[in-house]
């Protein structure tokens, strides 16, 4: 079994070496089978590593429960996202990591049947309190989606879109923001001569970087990335990853990814989720090398999921 997983995880799809957990340590044979319990509908308290207590916190998630109609999708999620770091959410499909991410800027509100209990606090402001202006809230964070989604307008207009909807008309300001954002997204050199062309004329990787430029145009506090590389080829992926690392000091980044190698390469903290429950949250190197729960270990070594 261990040999199998070792062989499987020696290299990722793009051939980069990966960190292998030390399997001999942290074997928790006598532990309860959390996965079975979760599948039976029990709520298991998550294992949170203590390292987070030393961090400056930007987002506090507090006993978050979410229902789509009658089906509950998130169970008592509680953890904290550090400022200026990359935090990744991993877990098998349907574990609620995208839902989790989409709660942060309340884009889930677009679905009628959503109901939420618990709260998130961003920089001291509640996200789900009744009086919160969703639109103002969304302006405080940028989001990048799975598939690049440039708008049907020029590259320039794509980038300054968040300012346009705020009614900014000052040409100089728009130009400045456009250049700054495109530089921030490492796209400026490639498109500076064709800002008037349609955003759809770019390649896939460029489109995704354009979306990142758009996301950082309004200078947000957080960046939410929902599997930003899953529709891209390896070269484009590498570029985006590099960009994420460059951005990580200036922005607090919350990223959902399917690709564990990516999570281990990119992020400072990692949260592992399963069926709407948070299993473990801690510094990435710990999650990948010596996780405290067997389930995390099984998942990161590829035994399931």
């Amino acid at each position: 079994m261990s040999t199998d997983s070792k062989n499987m995880n020696t290299t990722t799809e793009n051939g980069l070496p990966t960190i292998l957990p030390d399997l001999s340590a942290h074997q928790t044979e006598g532990d309860v089978d959390r996965l079975r319990l979760i599948e039976n509908g029990q709520v298991i308290p998550a294992v949170i590593h203590e390292d987070i207590n030393d961090e400056d916190i930007i987002l506090e998630i507090n006993k978050l429960n979410l229902w789509y109609g009658n089906a509950q999708a998130l169970y008592d999620i509680t953890f904290e996202v550090p400022r200026g770091k990359v935090t990744s959410l991993i877990g098998p499909s349907g574990c609620g990591k995208s839902t989790m991410l989409r709660c942060v800027n309340r884009i889930n509100d677009l679905i009628d049947s959503v109901r939420i209990e618990g709260d998130m606090i961003i920089d001291g402001d509640s996200i789900f309190a009744p009086g919160v202006d969703v639109i103002e809230l969304r302006k405080r964070m940028g989001m990048v989606f799975q598939k690049p989604n440039p708008f049907p307008m020029s590259i320039y207009e794509n980038v300054v879109y968040p300012l346009r909807i705020d009614g900014v008309r000052d040409r100089a300001e728009l130009d400045e923001v456009c250049e700054r954002s495109l530089r921030g997204a490492a796209l400026w050199d490639e498109v500076k001569d064709r800002l008037r062309e349609s955003g759809l004329s770019l390649s896939g990787g460029q489109q995704q970087r354009l979306c990142i430029a758009r996301a950082i145009a309004s200078d947000p506090e957080m960046l939410l990335l929902d599997e930003p590389c899953s529709a891209l080829d390896p070269v484009a992926t590498a570029k985006i990853e590099e960009l994420i690392q460059d951005l990580s000091g200036d922005y607090s980044i919350l990223i959902v990814t399917h690709n564990m190698q990516q999570a281990s390469r990119l992020s400072d903290y990692t949260a592992f989720m399963y069926l709407g429950n948070l299993i473990e949250f801690g510094p990435t190197y710990k999650i990948f090398s010596k996780p405290e729960t067997k389930e995390t270990e099984d998942y990161v070594t590829g035994r399931f999921g």
Binding site: L110, K139, N149, F151, Y161, A215
Partner: peptide
């Protein structure tokens, strides 16, 4: 995805 992208910018 376009609609969501737009909503996400506020």
């Amino acid at each position: 995805s376009l609609r969501e992208g737009s909503f996400a910018t506020g």
